[in-house]
C-alpha cells in the first residue's frame, strides 16, 4: 500500500478546473517531485492534500485512510506536514518558539517540546539563530525555519512547497543536504520545485502538471526526455 494516494482529484474555482482528474501515489520513503509551469496547479494540489481545500471530485488517502474533507490540523496530527511557498513564520516569536509551537503537537510538556525543537534546529542548522525573532531572519533561513517547523510536528510525509526558491547557491547546497537528511530519517517527501538541477539531483520520481492535468510521470531521466514535458516547458517549436 502506498503512503499517499491521490485518486482522480479535481477542484473547480468557479468554472475553472485548477486541478482536474489527477491521480498518483507516493510510496513510503521516496522523494516525489511535482513540477510544472507557473499556474499548473501544484500549490493547489498541496492545498488539497493538506486539507485547506476539499476536492470537488475524487479523494486523497493517507495510510489507507481517506483524509480529504478533514481539516488541516487533523491531517497534520495524522502525520502529514507542509511548508509554504510564501513563508509564514510566526513573526513576533523567536525561532525556537516557532518550532516549540509545532513540537507541542506530539509532546506533553514544555521541556520535551523544547528538547525536540532544539534537536530539529540543530538538524536544520538554525541552532545559532534560536533566540532571534523570526521577523529578522534572512529568506534562506526562513525557508529552513519552515522546514524545521514542519519536521517538529513529527510527520511521516512532508510537503515542501518551493523550499529552494530564491536561495543563493551556497544556501541551495545546505538545503539539499537537509532534504537528503530528512529522507535518511525515513520521512517521505513530496516537493514542488522549479530548480531543475535540484529536482534531478534529489528526486526519485517526478509528476508533471500542466493546466491542472497530469501530463507525465516517471523517473527523472524519463521525464526529462518526454516530448510532452519539453513542449509544456519550452513551447511546441522546440
Amino acid at each position: 500500500m502506498s503512503l499517499l494516494n491521490v485518486d482522480n482529484v479535481s477542484i473547480f474555482f468557479g468554472g475553472l478546473a485548477a486541478v482536474s482528474n489527477v491521480s498518483f501515489d507516493v510510496e513510503k520513503g521516496e522523494i516525489l517531485a511535482i513540477i510544472g509551469p507557473n499556474g499548473a496547479g501544484k500549490t493547489t494540489l498541496f492545498n488539497i492534500v493538506n486539507g485547506f481545500y476539499a476536492p470537488s471530485k475524487g479523494k486523497v488517502s493517507f495510510n489507507g485512510e481517506v483524509i480529504s474533507g478533514l481539516k488541516p490540523h487533523q491531517i497534520c496530527r495524522r502525520g502529514l506536514a507542509r511548508t509554504f511557498q510564501v513563508v509564514k513564520p510566526l513573526q513576533r516569536m523567536s525561532v525556537l518558539d516557532n518550532v516549540i509551537a509545532s513540537s507541542f503537537l506530539r509532546c506533553d510538556t514544555k521541556a520535551k517540546a523544547e528538547a525536540v525543537s532544539r534537536e530539529v534546529l540543530q538538524f536544520t542548522g538554525l541552532t545559532e539563530d534560536a533566540d532571534i525573532i523570526s521577523k529578522g531572519l534572512p529568506l534562506g533561513k526562513r525557508k529552513r525555519l519552515e522546514i524545521a517547523r514542519a519536521l517538529a510536528t513529527g510527520p511521516e510525509l512532508i510537503l515542501l512547497d518551493e523550499s529552494f526558491a530564491g536561495l543563493n547557491p551556497a544556501e541551495l547546497d545546505v538545503s539539499i543536504e537537509i532534504i537528503r537528511g530528512i529522507k535518511a530519517r525515513g520521512i517521505t517527501i513530496m516537493i514542488i520545485e522549479h530548480h531543475m538541477k535540484v529536482i534531478m539531483a534529489i528526486s526519485d520520481r517526478i509528476v508533471v502538471l500542466n493546466h491542472g492535468q497530469k501530463i507525465a510521470a516517471g523517473l527523472p531521466a524519463e521525464v526529462a526526455s518526454n516530448p510532452t514535458v519539453v513542449e509544456a516547458y519550452l513551447g511546441a517549436e522546440h
Binding site: 513564520p89 510566526l90 513573526q91 518558539d97 517547523r149 514542519a150 510536528t153
Partner: peptide
Amino acid sequence: VAIREDQDAAESLGI
C-alpha cells in the same frame, strides 16, 4: 500566539 501570528500556518502545524 501562533494563531495570532498566522492562522493558516498554525492550522497546518496541527493546531
